[in-house]
Amino acid sequence: MESTEAIEGNQREGDILLVLRHAPHGSSWLREGLDIALVGAAFDRKVSLLFMGEGVLALLSGQTSGALGQKGTHPTLQMLEMYDVDALYAESAAMSRFAVAEADLLLTPERVGETAIADLLKHHDLVLTF
């Protein structure tokens, strides 16, 4: 498989796309998915994140650790930039469905529709879904 995106700086070949489809707090899916983003970036891979379905709720600002005492995912999301993970995408339909406005978000993902999502899946060497 070939990537159409240029490999930046000293990053190694092998682009990773993480598809995040679970809301924070209710399960560990989101957190354990984001852990891979950090590890991938630490290993100098180019990592992109696609927030789909309930996953878009992870981007809402103003969240804390929550009643269950688990660590929230916000600190991890805020760390992404430091790790050069800045390719963020959010499913446009999901944002509409959950009435999530861009002004409500902690980060600034690119809104993507079905065609763009298909392109993302096609143009990454490794796609992992959480």
Binding site: F43, R45, L126, L128
Partner: peptide, 20 residues
């Protein structure tokens, strides 16, 4: 092992098939 192993595995093998 660490998660880095999963990243390497996913990129080195021809197919990584997920069951969840």
């Amino acid at each position: 092992v660490g998660l880095g192993q999963l990243v390497d595995l996913g990129l080195d093998c021809d197919r990584l098939v997920t069951f969840g």
